[in-house]
Design a protein around this nucleic acid. Structure first.
Length: 419
RNA sequence: GUGGGUGUAGCUCAGCUGGUGGUAGCACCUGGUUGUGACCCAGGAGGUCGUGGGUUCAAGUCCCAUCACUCACCCCA
């Protein structure tokens, strides 16, 4: 029986890593343009951290976490809680009143895997701590849009406000009344949701529920003055940056901690997994985790989903080019090639060679497949006479190279010719 | 946790109403005169047909079970 990776856990093989690096490098580039600093946290945390931040009653905490029960530690199901824990633990709020942080790494949730959804998955997570300013909300969305645009991934941005502890409870009551009135029209799931998370009824996928919910009260019309002002300012900010978006009064969040602004970047090319990025404001969370009373906002991008989209678009990346393939013919020449290759590498050239004593034809084929720019052919006779042949694989030109001298001199002469 | 679909070479897949596993494509290796890649040609290697039962003279094919993968629901990035 072959040993295979766990269900929902995937290897990222070399041919895929190129795309992953593209996603990650583009992310890092954009984040630094917006003056974000990277932070890295451990993958294991105390279980309590997630229970407190994400919410005891959420599916994630109730049944999807990888927890070592005996030790009460858990592999993080998302990044925000860990990041805030680190932010509080190291007193980062003292060093800078507003912290702009990002982190990239794996998360773990024990869900049934499907397209764009794995048990170990990777996110780029961005958080701004310490400011309630609605411009930051707009700026974050604009940054996400910029990143996706530079990756060439078309998405739509949807936004909503979830209100705050002042106005949300009131809306919840209104919504509950609405749901109760249509109890018989709504699906079983929605009736269950009405007790667990009533807002969820708003984004049920069941067509019948959708129809019913069409006339549901809009939270956007039940915001308190502060939330309403904030919501308006965010929209003004987006407009001033020319970011396209639409308001979606049905969009809610699965995690308890969100307040006010909430948003998603949505694609239509990933089946059921429409959201490639999502986030929102969480003004009470830092305090709830034992930190100072500072507001925060953040979002996460699902890297698997981004990579899938790039794969679907058949985006190709140039693989790292080999500068020079050193082809040695016969034992003596191979030995010479072996040590010369090392010197060339010390001089920063990307060198490949054959180790199996294969024919020149075979070595040329390998060089070609590796996209080598040059091949240095070292034969037995030439080696004795102190020269070798340097072939430019593109132009097919060949020239004689002196190899009388020591490796260092050969290397510097090759460096010049391989520019 | 609940449903549907699919398991044949490293990958993508043919294989009809049961009758000897495909000259299939890609990839790989070796050749196509002396020491030169791409294109082309020839050859080669590579498989307990996911696994275990059952029906049958005979099972990749039919039945049952099981495992894996996959898509969707729930939930979520």
């Amino acid at each position: 029986m072959k040993i295979m990776a766990l269900n929902g856990f995937k290897d990222i093989v070399p041919s895929e890593v190129e795309l992953w690096r593209k996603v990650e490098n583009t992310g890092r580039d954009i984040f630094s343009r917006f003056n974000f600093s990277e932070i890295r946290m451990p993958i294991l945390e105390k279980t309590e951290l997630f229970a407190r931040s994400i919410g005891e009653a959420t599916d994630i905490v109730e049944k999807e976490m990888y927890t070592f029960v005996d030790k009460q530690i858990t592999m993080r199901p998302e990044a925000t809680a860990s990041l805030l824990r680190a932010y509080i633990q190291h007193g980062l709020y003292v060093q800078k009143p507003v912290q702009r942080l990002f982190t990239i790494g794996p998360m773990f949730r024990h869900e049934r895997p499907q397209k764009g959804r794995l048990r170990q998955f990777h996110q780029m997570d961005i958080e701004v701590l310490g400011t309630p300013n609605p411009r930051v909300d707009a700026e974050l969305m604009a940054m996400g849009a910029m990143l996706l645009e530079e990756l060439g991934i078309p998405v739509s941005l949807e936004m909503n406000s979830l209100g705050c502890p002042v106005c949300r409870p009131g809306f919840r009551e209104i919504l509950l009344t609405f749901i109760a009135d249509r109890k018989n029209e709504l699906c079983d799931d929605c009736n269950r949701r009405s007790t667990t998370n009533p807002l969820r009824v708003l984004d049920c996928k069941n067509p019948k529920c959708r129809e019913q919910v069409e006339e549901a009260p809009s939270i956007q019309k039940h915001l308190c003055n502060d939330c309403d002002d904030h919501f308006a300012s965010v929209q003004k900010g987006l407009d001033s940056l020319n970011v396209q978006y639409s308001l979606n009064k049905f969009m809610v969040r699965g995690l308890d901690y969100y307040t006010r602004t909430t948003f998603e970047f949505i694609t239509s090319d990933l089946g059921a997994q429409a959201a490639v990025g999502a986030g929102g404001r969480y003004d009470g969370l830092v305090e709830k985790l034992g930190g100072p009373k500072v507001p925060g906002i953040g979002f996460a991008l699902g890297m698997e989903r981004l990579v899938l989209l790039l794969q679907q678009q058949e985006v190709k990346i140039d693989s790292a080019k080999v500068d020079l393939f050193v082809a040695g013919l016969g034992e003596k020449a191979s030995e010479f090639a072996f040590s010369l290759a090392h010197t060339l590498r010390q001089n920063s050239l990307n060198i490949a060679m054959d180790y199996e004593g294969r024919s020149l034809k075979s070595q040329m084929k390998q060089a070609n497949k590796l996209n080598a720019r040059f091949v240095l052919i070292i034969g037995e006779n030439e080696l004795e006479q102190g020269h070798a042949v340097l072939k430019n694989m593109q132009t097919q030109e060949q020239q004689d190279i002196e190899i009388h001298s020591d490796n260092k001199e050969i290397a510097s002469s090759l460096l010049l010719r391989c520019q």
